[in-house]
Simulated scan of single mutants.
Amino acid sequence: MGRGYTLLFILVTFLVLVAAVTAQGNRGSSRGGGRRPHVGFYGNRCRNVESIVRSVVQSHVRSNPTNAPGILRMHFHDCFVNGCDGSVLIAGNTTERTAGPNRSLRGFEVIEEAKTRLEAACPRTVSCADILTLAARDSVVLTGGQSWAVPLGRLDGKVSRASDVNLPGPNDPVSKQKQDFAAKTLNTLDLVTLVGGHTIGTAGCGLVRGRFFNFNGTGQPDPTIDPSFVSLIQARCPQNGGTRVKLDSGSVDKFDTSFLRNVRTGRVVLQSDQLLWRDPETRAIIERLLGLRRPFLRFGSEFGNSMVKMSLIGVKTGSDGEIRRVCSAILKV
């Protein structure tokens, strides 16, 4: 009898210890815990995370359609600088938001509103980095693109420096673009597909004016541009005026393959985009995507795959990150 009781006591003690270790591990994973993000990360701890973010994004995109490409661009700018950690959201005099390429970003208020609503529903649970990742997906869907499952579980970064911002440029040769993407574990298919996101949004006239008026100091437009497109952009971005121009002259507010078709016909505004048609490898990818019977479905599928890959760049876990209460401010210790 005494021996049986002792064995039972040992067994119960062992099970309690296992349960405690498991619980501690689960708490660790809720804050990152060294685990990679995965679909369904929040589970019962925040059941409505996706629907809350979606409703906020939907409201803002309906009232101002430019928020959709703005949020998509913001996600790209976040992930390409020290990983997808929401550091681009931090406000301050020397943060990433103040760097030249980020001064025209829009949609910060969308992420903040979603964060406020999530803090009310699930306090200190959902990171700003995850909110931005979900909002980027929802922006694509709301403009007609295909949806994809978003892995969640990122933490927010604790560092945001303007000096760290070094993004691909609008005049970069394809070799430089490939190099930049490879450094982020993204391949050439990812490059072409993600650049295809330019099917929504605009560019500042200052970025394209030289190409349409004085290409490489020649006093003439880039000869690879469709001549009829030259006059169109010159009218919209004259040498002494204009503000912004559509990246996709075919359907700027609709997520489709129009942009890729424009690359093929020499009707895109950024030099880095047009150069994709002159490189044999990137050209072959564009031709393959457009040559299918239903190119939009293949492009949408590839875009979702590449977005997932990009969203896993340099994610913060464990003590490297935190969950902010407000997306624009790092927690004070």
Rank of each mutant, 00 (worst) to 15 (best):
I111G: 05
P151R: 00
A121E: 15
G145S: 03
H60Y: 15
R325F: 06
G169V: 09
I313L: 06
N48A: 14
V39H: 02
T133K: 11
G40C: 06
P69F: 04
I330H: 01
I131Q: 04
L105C: 07
I285F: 01
I90E: 09
G144Y: 03
T125S: 08
R283H: 11
R154G: 09
V165H: 11
S104K: 13
R261S: 05
R288N: 11
R209W: 05
N214L: 12
V333R: 12
D226L: 10
G304F: 01
G206M: 08
T193H: 04
T199H: 02
G196F: 04
S301F: 13
R62A: 14
G242M: 07
G32L: 03
P173N: 11
A20I: 14
K254R: 13
T185H: 15
L191H: 00
N187R: 07
R106A: 12
R294S: 10
S301E: 14
T6F: 14
P227M: 01
A99H: 07
F9K: 12
N171K: 14
G204Y: 11
I10W: 10
G25C: 04
V39M: 06
R211T: 09
T98A: 11
G219D: 07
R106P: 06
L152I: 04
L289N: 03
C122T: 02
N166Y: 05
L155G: 15
R278D: 10
G4M: 13
T125L: 04
I323E: 03
G197S: 07
L331C: 06
C46L: 08
L132D: 09
L232R: 14
I286G: 03
G241D: 03
V141D: 06
S30E: 12
N216V: 10
G4S: 14
T188N: 07
D222I: 08
F41H: 15
V53M: 07
P151K: 00
I323N: 12
V18T: 09
A235H: 10
A203L: 08
E281V: 15
I233E: 06
F255E: 00
R27F: 13
C122Q: 02
P69Q: 08
D130R: 00
I200L: 07
G28E: 05
I323G: 08
G25I: 13
E112G: 10
S175M: 08
L17G: 05
P238Q: 06
S328Q: 12
F215A: 06
I233L: 05
N82H: 10
H75F: 15
L142I: 00
F108W: 13
P168Y: 13
I313W: 07
R298P: 06
V263Y: 06
P101R: 11
L89V: 02
S228V: 14
A182N: 11
D138I: 08
R325G: 14
N214S: 10
V12P: 00
G70F: 04
T317I: 09
V159K: 01
K184F: 11
Q24S: 13
Y42S: 03
E287N: 12
I71D: 00
G25S: 10
G28C: 09
S59I: 01
